[in-house]
């Protein structure tokens, strides 16, 4: 047992996120993305960030993915208007991504931090602790994010209105 659960879930999340970008059908991409988010929820549970795990489960897997699926069904994409991608762009994109990951990991090697992640305070990710933090020092950003959500809602309604306003 021990840390092997982390490596198993990590391998699952990498595999499913690869399948998100390489599957041909966009509906399959959305479904694989839901599975990827579920593995990330498992990661949050392993880190004992229970509040984030529940929020990730409800907001991402519930709300955002339903929005994606809904738009995908609404647009009614057929096979013939599914855009084809050239092989050159694919190869160049994969090479550029590999360069990015090599750069990040190489720069990480130079810093050489490798302490194990240990939970010092078991109450760290619980709602009580995070709520105190959220309504204490982060009161203003929290209220501003509500304004942001209201703005996004008004903007989305305005953008999708058919007639001119």
């Amino acid at each position: 047992m021990g840390t092997s659960v982390f490596y198993f879930v990590a391998a699952l999340s990498v595999i499913f996120s690869l399948m998100v970008i390489f599957s041909k059908n966009p509906v399959h991409s959305v479904l694989y993305l839901i599975v990827t988010f579920f593995t990330l929820t498992v990661h949050y549970i392993l880190l004992n960030a229970q509040f984030l795990a529940v929020v990730n489960f409800i907001v991402y897997m519930g709300a955002i993915m339903v929005l994606f699926l809904f738009v995908l069904m609404l647009l009614n994409l057929n096979k013939e208007n599914e855009p084809l991608k050239s092989n050159l762009v694919k190869v160049v994109g994969v090479i550029a991504g590999c360069c990015l990951v090599v750069t990040i990991i190489g720069s990480l090697k130079a810093t050489a931090i490798s302490d194990p992640v240990l939970l010092k305070n078991p109450n760290l990710g619980l709602v009580k602790n995070l709520g105190k933090e959220l309504f204490g020092p982060y009161m203003l950003p929290f209220e501003l994010s509500s304004v942001l959500l209201l703005t996004a809602m008004v903007g989305a309604v305005l953008l999708t209105k058919k007639e001119k306003v």
């Binding site: 047992m1 021990g2 840390t3 659960v5 982390f6 549970i45 392993l46 880190l47 004992n48 990480l108 931090i113 490798s114 302490d115 194990p116 992640v117 240990l118 939970l119 078991p122």
Partner: peptide, 10 residues
């Protein structure tokens, strides 16, 4: 969760 800790930060 305590039993599953200890993965290196890297």
């Amino acid at each position: 969760t305590q039993g599953l800790q200890g993965v290196p930060l890297n």
